[in-house]
Structure formats: C-alpha cells, structure tokens
Design a protein around this nucleic acid. Structure first.
Lengths: 335, 335
DNA sequence: ATTCTTTTTTTACGCGCGTCAATTTTTATG
DNA sequence: CATAAAAATTGACGCGCGTAAAAAAAGAAT
C-alpha cells in the first residue's frame, strides 16, 4: 500500500479510507485512485485490513442444510444482497446438525463479522448459545424464528399461506387431512399445524392430523415410507392430503405412484396432494405439485436490509422486528 | 497471546508453534497447553495469524452450482475431508456462471489459500485464467477435467460407467437411445456421448443420439420440455432412453407422466429411462430412476488427499495425475 | 557423570494496515 | 477576496502474531 501510495500520488491514510469505503473520499480523489488501480492492480491484504478493525465488512450467513434446494436458493439470494451492499458474505451450512450450527457461529465469530444472518433449526437450536452470540454480534434470523433471539426475524406468514391452500382445497374438493413429521425440527412446522387447525375450523370441517415417525433431514424418505404406509392402510378419511412441506409431499407422491394410486384433480384420480414451499423440484413431480410459493427473494432481501439498517445505525434497535411475507398459491396438477 | 503465555507458563513462540501445528511441540508441553486452554479459553486471532504467513491453512473449494444436490453433497464431502486433515475449508459456488468461477478464485486468492479444490465448468471455464491461477496456488480438479490445468484430476470413469449401463440396457431389453443437451457445459457430457457410441458399437447395435436445445442449469426443465416434445413426436427408434444425467432424466420422466406414457420394466410399460449420477432425488421419481451411482465420497476423499500430498511435499508433482473411479449400476424401476 | 541432541526460552524485528493528531491543501460560502 | 469548512497529507504508533537467532534448559545416549 505504501508503494501504491507512492506511485499513485495519494497518501496512504487516504487510500486506507478509500478501501474501507470508497464513498468516504472526495469524488475527484476516488477517480484518481480508481484510475491508478486499473493501472497497477494493487489489492489490499485482507488479513492486515481486518486485524486492527474491531468491525469488519464480513457478514456471516448460516443455513441449516444446504443440500436442501430451498436453503440453497435462499442462501444464494442473501449472499447476493450482501454483495450488492458492499459486504463480504460467508455462507455456511449446518448440514442438519444443531451442534454444527454452534460451530459455524463460533468460527464466524473469529472472523469478527459485522453481523450474521441465521436461518436456525428452531426448536433443535441451542437457544442460549444463540442468544449469547447475539450479544456480541448483530444477528438477524430468517426462515425460522427463535423467540427473543436476534434483532429481527423475517419469514413467511404460515397462517396466511396455510389458510390460503386449505381454503382452496376445501373449495375445490374434499377438505384436506394434514400430513407432517411427529418431531419436526423446524418451528414453521408447528405454525403450519396450528394454522391448519384454525383454517379447518373456519371452514367448518373436522381436522385430521397424521404424523410420521422419523427424524433427520431425509424428508422424502420419510414421506415415502410413512406416507406410503398410511396410504396402504387407508388411514386418511378424505381423498386430500396437505403436507407440511414439499419434500414430504414428494415422498408421498412417489409412494402413491408405487401403489398405483392416481393423484390429481381428474375424475379418475383418488388422491389429491398439496405441499408448501414451492421446492424447485415440485414442478417435475408426477403429477406436478400444487403448493405454496414462499417469496424467498423478498425474505432474503428484507433480512439483509434489516441487518444493514442495524449496522449503519450503529446501535441495536429497541424493539425486535418480525416481518412476515405472504405465500402465493401455485396451482399445478396434484390438487 | 502474550497474556496467555504469562498465565500458562509457556513462552509465546512455543504457543505460536503449537497453534500452527500441535504435533510440533513435545507431548508434555502440548498437554500443559491444552490444560491451560481449557481453563482460560484463549483463541488466537485469525487475521493476525495469517498476516505473516505466506501459506495459510485455508483450502478453497469451488463448485459450479451448489443448488444442484450432486454438488452440494460432493462439496460437503470435500469440506469434511479438509476439516479432518486440519485445514479450514472455504466453500464457494459459482452459481452457474463461469464469470463467477473466476471471481471466486480471485476472492480465494486474497485469502492466501494453501491450495484449492475446484470442480470447474469445463468447456465454459476460463481455461487461461485457471491455468494462471494454478501457477500461484496448488490446484486439484475434481468432477470435471480441464486438460493441462491443475496438478491432478479426480473423477468418474464415464467410459466404464456408461459401458456398464448400456450393457445392462441391451441385455435386459431394447438397446438405448442417448438423450443429452446440445451444448453441454460439462466435459463429462462429451465423454458420456463418446462412451455411449463405443459401447453401442461393442454391443453391435446402431447408436441414436438426440440432443435438446437450451442452455443453463435448468436441466429438469430442458429434459421435460425438449424430451417431452421428442416423446410426443415419437422420435426415439427404441423404447429405451439413456439420459446423459439424472436431472435430464427427471425432466423426461415428468414429461412421460404428463403424456400418460408408462415407464418401467413391466409388460404394460412402453418406455424405459435411465440416468447417470444417482441424484439424491432419483429414488423418489415416478418410477424410481435406474442410474449410475458415482462414488463421490471416494472422489472427494481422493481429491482432498491428492491436494494434501502436494501441500506436504512442498513441491509441485512432476506428472499430472488423473484418477478415475468406477460407477455402480443402481437398478430401480425405470429401466 | 559427560556429551550430544532436542526442545524451549529470551530477545527482537517486522508484516500490512488502521488510526490518531497536527498540519497543509483544496473546496465551498459569503 | 477573505474566511470557514472539508478533505488530504505527514508522521507516528500499535495491532497480534510469525519468525529468526542465540542462549538456556531438558532429555537421551554413551
């Protein structure tokens, strides 16, 4: 940097300011630096930059399971939002392990991040650990909420979205049963069950909840095995099943296919299946899956903005903000 | 560290050695340090550690598209192998953009990585850029090869795997046609086409190749639209289609379902479909997909080992090593 | 016990940059 | 044009650690 200062004719402290925030120097100076930069392509040393800075431009992003395309997509959207705002995103996956969630936060902490965007496991998360973490680092949660942790939460309004699909299913055929995991790792699952119950009450139909054994992240497998068993045993009192998420629904569709059960709205169909999340593969299931599309680019953008607002205000907000986006019904072949 | 040296009764240079490599100090000393570490939980500053080190313990991992579960899984396996070897993996996705591949390598370079594991796009990659990069940083390629770039390549033996599935398909029914993308971004696709041609020649059957228009990473969509069109137009001269990869096959299966074509081995079936890769969702397609399973944990482990061997030997190997693992046939319902 | 070897300690420097205070230069304002 | 305000420069210190050289200590071998 010393050398670059010499040949570019700019003092080193000014260069330092520039690299921290190009907007912080006068425009004429900025242009001179940028011109010199093209000529000599100097790049500051990341490690030396961050050593003396208490707050860096790093933003940690942690999602529970990157192999799930839903988190892959939303992780990407958050990453982009950070880049656009001039931060350096660092994306980590907890790979289904709450312990790894803690490890990820730990390893992020040593990178002195300006803030962290976390999609937590929820119930399975180490709540105390996360709250402790949030005391040191500005933290915004998305997708899954943990009451009282972090400065803000951004997610989908499960009551709205489930209400929407339940209303649709009731209007267009038999009222839906609800299929979910017995011990869901995600708090959205609990919200959705509750939302289902309320929506069915509103519609004046009896509610029927069916819970699959099993834990972990092999949702398709669970949906296929447990859902398949239920189909074979004819436990569903109506011909319509609303699955707590698309991955369970994908499993159930595969089970229905194996059993020769025709799924869809047609007259020859004996089963309707709907999901929630608009998983990237839901368009290609057989039949294609009717589901709820979460507005995850809105969720990602809003979560990032919320964090940046906190970072720029330099102080923690007084009230914890919770923002919920509405889901959209995506009507396809399965229901 | 100074403080921690004082209260633990160990000199600071010894501590420094310890944190670089715990094995480099005498066992009795190591135990004393570890005991003190539990008591005072000091952790060295990552940035200061790496500042004066020309080579860090960072290992960059770059995959072309993390939303593809195949890369998600193999990326994870590589990540784990790095952690086990005491390195700090940093996983980046190029999100389908060759430009971003360059950007990722650039941003990795500023982290002074000890080495980089790259699954490149292949043909679409910026070959010169990557070769330039490899001059600075030890580089090992996996999944997709770029001739002459990097110190080693580890992947699947497409000729073996395609030979295997072609042999199986011929033996168990009509010989397969081959369905692929016209402009594949992945060099494996070219190998597979070639392998198909050779395998069909060996089997004494005429080869039929059908290429879908379209580019990008929406393989399911392309398989569904283009493959569906071909099915409707009855262009396939036999009842068996071998798809270049599972994601195309998933699309084709969805198209077949829409058209009421029964897929599988049964007497009432008029189409057989096979894929390649054993995509995580292939078990849940309708019907479940017969495919080739790549041994990606072996690929990941071997790629990581190859890099570590280079790092520990401190010099570039004389010859470029290419290691190919065999694929395994996974027989399911679709063929 | 002596000698040789390995390990640790002592001492000291420097990495590349952030950042501060004092000063000078440039730009905006009246 | 003078003056105030904003921005840039000068000079200097320190961050937390790597690392080198020389001396001391500990352990191993004879």
């Amino acid at each position: 940097m010393e050398e670059f200062a010499a040949i570019s004719g700019i003092s080193r402290p000014t260069l330092s300011k520039f690299f921290n925030d190009p907007e912080s120097v006068r425009r004429s100076t900025r242009e001179r630096i940028e011109k010199a930069l093209e000529k000599y392509d100097y790049r500051p040393n990341v490690f030396a930059m961050n050593q003396n800075r208490s707050k860096t431009k790093n933003v940690g992003i942690v999602v529970p399971y990157l192999a799930d395309p839903f988190f892959s997509e939303i992780g990407r959207a958050v990453e982009l939002a950070c880049l656009d705002a001039g931060y350096s995103p660092i994306l980590h996956s907890s790979h289904g392990s709450p312990q790894l969630e803690n490890d990820n936060l730990d390893s992020l902490r040593s990178l002195k991040p300006a803030g962290v965007l976390l999609a937590p496991f929820g119930r399975a998360s180490d709540r105390k650990f996360i709250q402790e973490f949030a005391r040191e680092v500005p933290l915004v949660l998305f997708d899954a909420n943990i009451e009282g942790a972090g400065e803000a939460f951004i997610g989908t309004d499960n009551f709205q979205s489930i209400g929407l699909v339940v209303e649709y299913l009731c209007r267009s055929g038999e009222p839906p049963c609800f299929f979910e995991m017995k011990t869901p790792s995600n708090p959205n699952a609990n919200k959705r069950r509750q939302a289902y119950l309320e929506a069915m009450a509103r519609q004046g139909h009896p509610a029927h909840i069916f819970q699959a054994e099993g834990d972990g992240w092999d949702f398709e497998e669970i949906g296929s095995v447990e859902g398949g068993r239920m189909l074979a045993d004819r436990v569903f009192p109506t011909n319509t099943v609303l699955c707590s998420n698309d991955r369970l629904a994908i499993g159930m569709l595969s089970a229905a296919y194996r059993q020769g059960i025709r799924v869809g709205r047609g007259p020859d169909c004996t089963l309707r299946v709907a999901g929630h999340d608009d998983h990237p593969f839901s368009r290609f299931t057989c039949p294609s899956l009717t589901t709820i599309a979460q507005d995850y680019s809105a969720i990602a953008d809003h979560a990032a903005s919320a964090l940046f607002a906190i970072l720029e205000s330099e102080r923690r907000p007084a009230a914890r903000e919770e923002t919920l986006f509405e889901g959209k019904l995506v009507m396809r072949e399965s229901a």
